[in-house]
Nucleic acid binder design. Sequence first.
DNA 1: AATTTTTATACCTTATAGGGTATAATTTTA
DNA 2: TAAAATTATACCCTATAAGGTATAAAAATT
Lengths: 72, 72
Amino acid sequence: MESPLASFVKNKRKLLNLTQPDLASKAGVGLRFIRELEQGKTTLRLDKVNQVLQLFGHEIAPVLNKKNNADV
Amino acid sequence: MESPLASFVKNKRKLLNLTQPDLASKAGVGLRFIRELEQGKTTLRLDKVNQVLQLFGHEIAPVLNKKNNADV
DNA sequence: AATTTTTATACCTTATAGGGTATAATTTTA
DNA sequence: TAAAATTATACCCTATAAGGTATAAAAATT
């Protein structure tokens, strides 16, 4: 499964020439977490994801959905 | 603790005149989850948060951080 | 193409997220 | 201001996220 979040992290990491272990230790999360994140696992914890995104000057936030159905 | 995500959900819910139980059942998550979400708990699961945001036509995504430090 | 580096997969363990429920507190409405 | 409705807090339980480690596979380097 390819998720936007997964691609985002993988790309940013590559841009900085970091390995997964590099990123893991910089972010203070486990190596396995980075792998699951980059592979699009959906059941990740918000705070851990943010720990990683922070390294890239980003954070998780609600944004408008493409396939919209804002019709509760 | 007041988080942007928490406020977002609370506001959207209010706009639609839903109670927390309403939102919980519409989103297919537990009532407790909605409460923790609206109270700014940070260790929530990404997929559950998305289940809720979807009702508002939104989803979680990485956005630029205010307090930036994109200097790995 | 052989070696090294990086990434992926699989297993075990521990801490806890999330569901449920019951009760208390707060807010709303009559 | 009582009564009703909504939200908050606290408990128990189960499933699993996340860490670690070991090995396999794949990519990159020489």
